[in-house]
Design a protein around this nucleic acid. Sequence first.
DNA 1: GATGAATGAGTGTTCATTCAT
DNA 2: AATGAATGAACACTCATTCAT
Lengths: 202, 202, 202, 202
Amino acid sequence: MDNENERRKKLILCAKKEFMEKGFEKASLRAISAAAGLTTGAVYFFFKDKNGLFGAVVDQPLQRFLQVIEQHFSEDLETDMADLKHISGDHDDVAEMIISVLYSDRDALLILLEKASGSSYEGIVDRFVELLEKHNTALARNYLAAYPDKRVNEYMLHWLSHVQVSAFVHLLTHVDDKERAVKEIKPVMDMLVESWMNYVLE
Amino acid sequence: MDNENERRKKLILCAKKEFMEKGFEKASLRAISAAAGLTTGAVYFFFKDKNGLFGAVVDQPLQRFLQVIEQHFSEDLETDMADLKHISGDHDDVAEMIISVLYSDRDALLILLEKASGSSYEGIVDRFVELLEKHNTALARNYLAAYPDKRVNEYMLHWLSHVQVSAFVHLLTHVDDKERAVKEIKPVMDMLVESWMNYVLE
Amino acid sequence: MDNENERRKKLILCAKKEFMEKGFEKASLRAISAAAGLTTGAVYFFFKDKNGLFGAVVDQPLQRFLQVIEQHFSEDLETDMADLKHISGDHDDVAEMIISVLYSDRDALLILLEKASGSSYEGIVDRFVELLEKHNTALARNYLAAYPDKRVNEYMLHWLSHVQVSAFVHLLTHVDDKERAVKEIKPVMDMLVESWMNYVLE
Amino acid sequence: MDNENERRKKLILCAKKEFMEKGFEKASLRAISAAAGLTTGAVYFFFKDKNGLFGAVVDQPLQRFLQVIEQHFSEDLETDMADLKHISGDHDDVAEMIISVLYSDRDALLILLEKASGSSYEGIVDRFVELLEKHNTALARNYLAAYPDKRVNEYMLHWLSHVQVSAFVHLLTHVDDKERAVKEIKPVMDMLVESWMNYVLE
DNA sequence: GATGAATGAGTGTTCATTCAT
DNA sequence: AATGAATGAACACTCATTCAT
């Protein structure tokens, strides 16, 4: 039983390395199995197929991340929208939580975000943007209720959602130290919030 | 020679379509040649290899773009940095010029930016970011000479360069009408300039 | 022992289903074991190999069938060949007996007859034909002894043996109700007997 | 151009041999190409895929056969059904024509009839039976119009169609000499016609 | 009594590339 | 100027079978 888990884990580990280097599509199951000291058939014992192996590398971190995000989203919508201060209040904590979950398995998430092309996880970043955009739209609606003289710039809303997501992707990609990441994200978040208030709501 | 040029052009046209649909890697030379009414061998008569064909699709638009950018960069550095107003003055014109060159062969540039993975043009976006970052660093140096009490946030500089590039990529990807693009980019540019002044220089 | 027998039986049952659907060759041991809630290894505990499992599905019905046939054959040869009436007398009873044994495990026999390709039972129909042909040859010899002015058409003898066998195979394949089978086989048998008398003996 | 045709032909020839020995499914493209002194890739230059190669072996003979059959069918329906004699008149010529086309590429047709499982030609015999059954049904209708006191035994009609087809399959399979085939088929045809009149029409 | 793990050989198929003609 | 032919390596995936435990 120890053995079984170790071989499986080794397979996942070698897959991680190969996916990181070559991306999903160009990754070779033969190379992965060989690196793990096994044959391709072994992959198909432990996983359904290439995509299943990819999932074994990235799915758990992804789910953890989604959970954090969704919890934050629902909390976010409960706060008093008339109180503009809140927006600049706790977003640092949120950012820190997100960074925390992102860096808990940084490699896996890098693969998920940048090397998934060809797998069933392809386009995950766009799905994140959509998710966030939906949330931001809801937020904007709440603001408009409180400040009826404002209007929403739809394109800006969409684009800033994109930038918001890419802020974290960029961090993950370019900053390998979690502490530094926490430090660097602060002014970025400030900037985003300010831009949100001034450019999404016009 | 007319004939040759037409076959060559048709090949490039069909390649454009295939690269757009499948990306560089998954594009099939057989499919491209067949669509052009030729055989794979013909590709190798007109172009060095698959990558050469890709270049024939994207290189000219890319060069045109680079030229515009570089000219702007050199003009930009000649202006008086002590005059902070300039920064918000003409950036609309610059944006319009860039959009103009981007949309003059939008498909080719979309391919270059999003479908080049596997080709020698892979990672072109990152190279744009680097280019811009270098320019922004030079700009920042000039500012610092004029305003010695300020400091530069390096990460912010890097990240905003990234966002600046992605602003245009996003536009190209999501807005198919050039006029609308010109309209939408304005507040985006305003936001970027403001962020630059407030967050890169701290 | 009860447990063992049940697992074994379940394995056979699931194998039957899979062989029926896919045929011997394309049937998957993995699929069979999984359907039985077991693993492939289990198959190799209960049976020698894939072919052994196939045998467990079809061999018993086959043996029962062969026994009925052989008994009929030996009885058939004991009757007085000079008495031509006998031939049209009891062949209905024989047909009914054969149908009875065929339909006692119709699925297994269908598999044996039509889905055995690749197994050691491949070509069983031809072996039935050979068997019957041998018997028919013996019969013909007896007739010739009684009616010395007749001759035997060898090819017709061979071919009618084939048709005789295929009459039952066709029935099994196309008529799922035993009672209807008994009804439909009658004119077929009449036809075969008549043809035998008129065309095998010329 | 000579070369091209020869390699293609050699490929078809080797395929024919392999399909004959192993059947469509178990035939190996690698073995075929190797036997032809080529690589598997070459197969895909000349043919679409494995099935396409199979088609190159069997399709032309099949079409020739279908043509003969269809012509015979349409002529057959034009004759005067009240004239029962016709039925025993020319069926020898028909049989000879069929045998002629069957033996013009006997190997290919044997493959088509017995080794096509897994290919798109699978079940061709059943389709022949259906075709013939449809024709026989039309014939029977005509007879009934002329002889209103008769009835049709549906099962017998179906089964005799099957036997009729299998008569030719059996011939092709068991008699390798065309002249002998022509000789052997005669009493078979007589028998079938007689059975038709006595057992299909009752 | 049966599992879980793993093998190793095999499959059809696709591809960019080459080159004689 | 371009074709038609062919290569050779790679690919994901499937399978019956084995065997230590």
